[in-house]
Design a protein around this nucleic acid. Structure first.
Lengths: 156, 156
DNA sequence: TTTAATCTATATTAATTTACTCGGTTATAG
DNA sequence: CTATAACCGAGTAAATTAATATAGATTAAA
């Protein structure tokens, strides 16, 4: 029941772009360095974010990525689902809508549990906008006098 | 972000015991057969449940397992945490209380996200009592005329 | 006191997933 | 043209998960 590095790294990457906030595209290599994530790996993560319309890309020299929407319009839920797929605790076809073969659908009671967990996770992350994280991040940076340079590798 | 079979099988096993509800212990081999789970594997799961005080065992011939508490006093959260460990989406020492070395603790903003997800999951599962599942299960069985015999292998 | 049925513990294996790495292609600013 | 940076597909090593297997200890009924 853990989020993979995909979700953790990816969210940090989006937040990184949001914090640069100029109109210029942010190069992946810079994000990779600041966040201590492998560039090659980051490419795979950002591809999912692009596919979901969260970031847009500018190709070629001086290119990079920028947010496709204002920070107030992007929820953490959007980001995490883009990265991790759905946020359901089980692959139960009964409530995910995917046509599957749960041959015990009518007898299965635990699906109510999975549904409640799923709903609570999704409403939690949908209630957090990227703008909140940006604000919070700015506060923290002012308080600690932190800069990109003294930011070290993160464990979570 | 998926629950493992440990959590899924284990919850079903506890519910199975609750539904037998006599004062007699339920043999693991019976649960294994009814739920379509390997006996050896089930033994590992039930051990965690016993360790957490959710079930108690009766050894020897005619032995088995029974609930250590009334169904109204056991929450799905208790069961899932016994099986899966914590239900936190990340191993962030900042909010799990475990003394760890998050060298970016003061700069890390995503931890607020993880904390909110964690809280929502835990309050969701703590709000579901085993008694609810038992009730729901009885309703379903009456409606469908289901018996143990026609219960087939479940996928979720 | 057998004997059957159960719980307990540990070790091994197979399958799957995760977390990357690598090599190359395409596009664009300067 | 050339440097830079996005894009793409495949491959791989490590870790985790899901079992399976083995051996033994405990208990209670016959």
């Amino acid at each position: 029941m853990k989020l993979s590095t995909t979700g953790r790294y990816g969210l940090r990457a989006v937040l990184d772009i949001a914090l640069q906030d100029g109109n210029e595209a942010v190069a992946l290599s810079q994000i990779a360095e600041r966040q201590g994530i492998s560039l090659n790996y980051l490419e795979q993560l950002i591809a999912r974010l692009k596919k979901s319309g969260i970031v847009s890309s500018v190709r070629g020299a001086q290119g990079g990525y920028k947010l496709a929407l204002p920070v107030e319009s992007i929820s953490v839920g959007d980001i995490l689902r883009a990265l991790e797929g759905d946020l359901n605790p089980v692959d139960c076809p009964e409530f995910t809508g995917v046509s599957g073969n749960c041959n015990n659908a009518d007898l299965c009671v635990t699906k109510y549990v999975w549904k409640r967990i799923s709903d609570s996770i999704n409403s939690a992350v949908d209630g957090i906008m990227l703008s909140e994280l940006v604000e919070e991040s700015r506060k923290v940076q002012v308080m600690t006098g932190a800069s990109d340079q003294n930011r070290s590798k993160q464990t979570c």
